[in-house]
Each structure stands twice: as C-alpha cells, then as structure tokens.
Amino acid sequence: MPQLNPLDDPAADPFEVARDAAARIAELTGVEHHDLALTLGSGWGRAAELIGETTHTIPATEVPGFSKPALEGHVGTLRSVLLPNGTRALVIGARTHYYEGHGVRRVVHSVRTAAATGASVMILTNGAGGIKEHWKPGTPVLISDHINLTADSPLEGATFIDLTDLYSSRLRAIAHGLAPDLDEGVYVQFRGPHYETPAEVQMAKTIGGHIVGMSTALEAIAARQAGMEVLGFSLITNLAAGIQTTPLSHQEVIEAGRAAEPVISRLLADVVAAI
C-alpha cells in the first residue's frame, strides 16, 4: 500500500511537515543549511549542472510531503548544490502542480521546505505561453507580477500577507544587469490542466497579463509568507491560444524547452552566481 502523504491530513500543520522534510534533507545529504532554492520547470533543468557542484541527489519521494511528479520533464529529485562562492542551493525537480488535484498544501510544500532548510531566496521557473506576439518560442522572460486565477491560496485562516514587490525588484535588477535585453511580463496562473481558450487568453491580456501558465503564482505567495525573496522566470515555449494559429500541445512545450535549455540555463546560472 502506498504511504499516505502527511499533508493530506487536514489536522496536520504544513509548516511542521516542511520542518520534518528539511530535517530529512539534512539527514540524507549531510548539509544542514541551504542559502537559496530553485524550482526548475520545463526547459530549465540544465541549470542544475551549471550553477555549481551537485554533491547530493535524493529522490523526492524519500522526503516527507513530496510525491512523484505527474508531468514528463520533471525529474522528481532534490539536489544539494555547492556554489563556487561556498553557499548552498537546493534544486527542486519535484513540482506538484495545482491541476493534479492534491490540494494547495502539496503544491507549495517544496517552497516551504526550502524555507525550512534556511533558504532566503526562492527562484521559480516555468514553461509558459506568451501573449506578446514578438516573443518567439525559447524566449526567457522575467516575471514582474502575477494574476492568480486559481481561486485558491496557500494562506489559511486570517493570514494577511502583503504581495507588493512579490517578484523582487532587486533580483530582477541583477538579472537585467546580466541580460539587458530581458523582457518582463505579468504571469497569469490558470487552474489547468487544459490549455486556455483564445477567449481566455484575450481576457488575460485585457486584465494585464502577458504570460499564461499553470504554476508559480501559488508557490510565490507561499514563499513570501515564509519571508523569502522571490525571482520568477518564464520560458516562452509557445504563443498562447489565439495568438498562434496552430493547436497547442505538451510535446511542443517539451521540444521548445529542450531547444532553449542551453541558453536559458546559462543565463539562470549567471544570475545565481550574481545574487
């Protein structure tokens, strides 16, 4: 029988589960503290090799609260990486998406675990659809803000968190210093797993969105609650429905990610080195 996930118990304290997960990571890796964390979405995986020396790789399923990723392109591991400056990065390749139906606690558990390991910076990456017509597949874009259309939140009870400058202007300035031509955009998280209709994309555009996807926003809110500084990157894997004329497919997302991976991973590694 598969082991029950502790986060599925409504009475469980999700922060206590995150602390247990952090303790397990320390036990399995021998690394007591991580300084920053990265969630590597579609197309961003190679950055794990470029940012430093991976000293430990552990299956995420060996850590409390984590489960096997449902999506192809996500490897289901946690890595402890020693950066050239002597600091430590926790690389999360085990994202749980909201559309998997496990609840928000499971979606944001990786972020809360990263915070519990000591990480003060959370870098969130994804593959997404672009609304700006001049964006070509393979274009990296900084997330400047988000619109959460999941009708959900990782915050429970009377918990009020300010989301002004959620996507850190300081960290975005570092990225712009390394790549002055980097564009920015507002990320719109839909529930998924279906792709957006052309009308929904136009709605997103009308309310101020530039990027559409199925992750990141809920994780960013949880990171802010944990006191972390957040940097967000989207890889534009395709133009969104109605902007491009051909049907969307997950295979297209995977292929665009693979093609862009060397360039965007180098960019991300340079940003990490500069933080």
Rank of each mutant, 00 (worst) to 15 (best):
L82A: 15
L36Y: 06
P10T: 09
H194G: 14
Q202W: 00
S249E: 01
A37E: 04
A273K: 11
E49K: 12
A115I: 02
G130E: 06
P14Y: 06
A18C: 08
L267E: 05
K136T: 13
A223N: 00
N148V: 05
G76D: 11
A175H: 00
A116R: 02
E100W: 09
I174P: 03
R258Q: 14
E200S: 09
L36I: 03
E196L: 02
H97W: 00
A173D: 14
T197F: 10
L38R: 03
A273R: 14
R105C: 11
E261R: 05
I221H: 06
A199Q: 03
V263C: 01
D162P: 07
P193N: 12
R266V: 02
E133P: 13
G127P: 09
L90K: 01
D35W: 02
P6G: 07
A175G: 00
S42M: 02
H56L: 00
I123P: 04
L28N: 04
M203A: 14
S249H: 10
G157S: 10
H250I: 09
I123L: 09
P180S: 13
T139E: 11
P84C: 10
P69N: 08
S215K: 11
A260F: 08
S153K: 01
E252G: 15
N85H: 14
K68D: 13
R172H: 12
Q3H: 14
P247W: 11
D183Q: 12
A12D: 09
G127H: 06
L7T: 01
A70Y: 09
N126Q: 09
A175K: 08
L83I: 10
E229V: 02
T164S: 14
Q251K: 15
L268N: 04
N5V: 11
V188T: 14
N148K: 07
G103V: 09
L50A: 08
D9Y: 08
L231M: 11
A256T: 00
T164L: 13
A175N: 10
T237M: 05
T77Q: 12
V81F: 03
V17R: 00
A23S: 15
L182N: 01
T139Y: 07
I131P: 04
L155T: 02
H146G: 11
L90G: 01
G177D: 09
L142W: 10
A240C: 08
G130Q: 05
L248C: 08
A256K: 00
A269T: 02
H194L: 15
A222T: 03
T29P: 05
A18Y: 10
L7I: 05
K132W: 00
T197S: 15
L4V: 14
H146D: 13
V212W: 05
G103F: 08
G101M: 10
V188D: 11
A115E: 01
V108Y: 02
I58L: 15
D181V: 08
E32V: 04
R258M: 11
S153M: 07
V91E: 03
D165G: 06
A115K: 06
A22D: 10
I58K: 03
A179L: 10
A37V: 04
